[in-house]
C-alpha cells in the first residue's frame, strides 16, 4: 500500500497535516499502537523540517505486513554536514521558528530514536531525502 502527501515549505499552519493523515490510516489498519506512536513522532519531526527549511516536499509512505517505510523528499537548502545536524541541540532554524518553540535541535534525534532505520541523503542547494523504516511486531 502506498500513499503520498505534499508538504508546503514555510506554512506552519499546515504542519502536521500529513503526519495526521498517516496516523489515521495506520489506526484504521490496526497497526500496533506502540508502533503508531513511534512513527508519528518521526513523521511529524520530518514534516516540520520540510516546513521550517525547504521550499516544498513530498512524504511517501509504503506499508506492507512487516513494516512501514516513509521517504520524505524536499527541495531546499540541503544539509552540509549531516553528522553535525544529527547532534542533539544543533539547529539552523530561524529566530522566528525558534520563537514558536521549534528549532531546539531535537528533531533529527527524535526521528532517529523513533524509527528502526534512518538514512539521510542531502545535496547542498538541491534538497534532502530522509528515509525511515519501522518494523511491526518487534
Amino acid at each position: 500500500m502506498e500513499f503520498s502527501y505534499d508538504i508546503a515549505g514555510g506554512d506552519f499552519s499546515r504542519a502536521g497535516a500529513a503526519s495526521s493523515e498517516v496516523k489515521k490510516i495506520l489506526k484504521q489498519l490496526n497497526v500496533e499502537l506502540a508502533v503508531i506512536k513511534r512513527v508519528v513522532v518521526a513523521l511529524y519531526e520530518a514534516e516540520v523540517n520540510v516546513v521550517a527549511h525547504a521550499a516544498d516536499g513530498v512524504m511517501q509512505v509504503t506499508l506492507d505486513s512487516a513494516s512501514i517505510e516513509v521517504v520524505i523528499r524536499d527541495r531546499g537548502p540541503g544539509i552540509p554536514d549531516i553528522a553535525l545536524a544529527m547532534q542533539e541541540g544543533y539547529s539552523t532554524a530561524s529566530p522566528r521558528v525558534r520563537e514558536m518553540g521549534f528549532g531546539a535541535g531535537m528533531g533529527l534525534p527524535n526521528i532517529k530514536r523513533n524509527c528502526d532505520s534512518l538514512d539521510i541523503e542531502s545535496t547542498v542547494g538541491v534538497g534532502t531525502t530522509v528515509r525511515m523504516v519501522t518494523f511491526f511486531n518487534r
Binding site: S13, M100, G101, F102, P109, N110
Partner: peptide, 26 residues
C-alpha cells in the same frame, strides 16, 4: 519546546505551556 513534547510527552497528559499557536493543537 515542541520537539521536547513530541518526543517525550505521553498520551493522556496535560500539557502546560506558554505557546499559543496552532501547532500546539497538532
Amino acid at each position: 519546546l515542541l520537539s521536547d513534547v513530541m518526543g517525550h510527552a505521553r498520551e493522556g497528559q496535560v500539557w502546560i505551556t506558554l505557546q499559543t499557536h496552532k501547532n500546539v493543537v497538532a
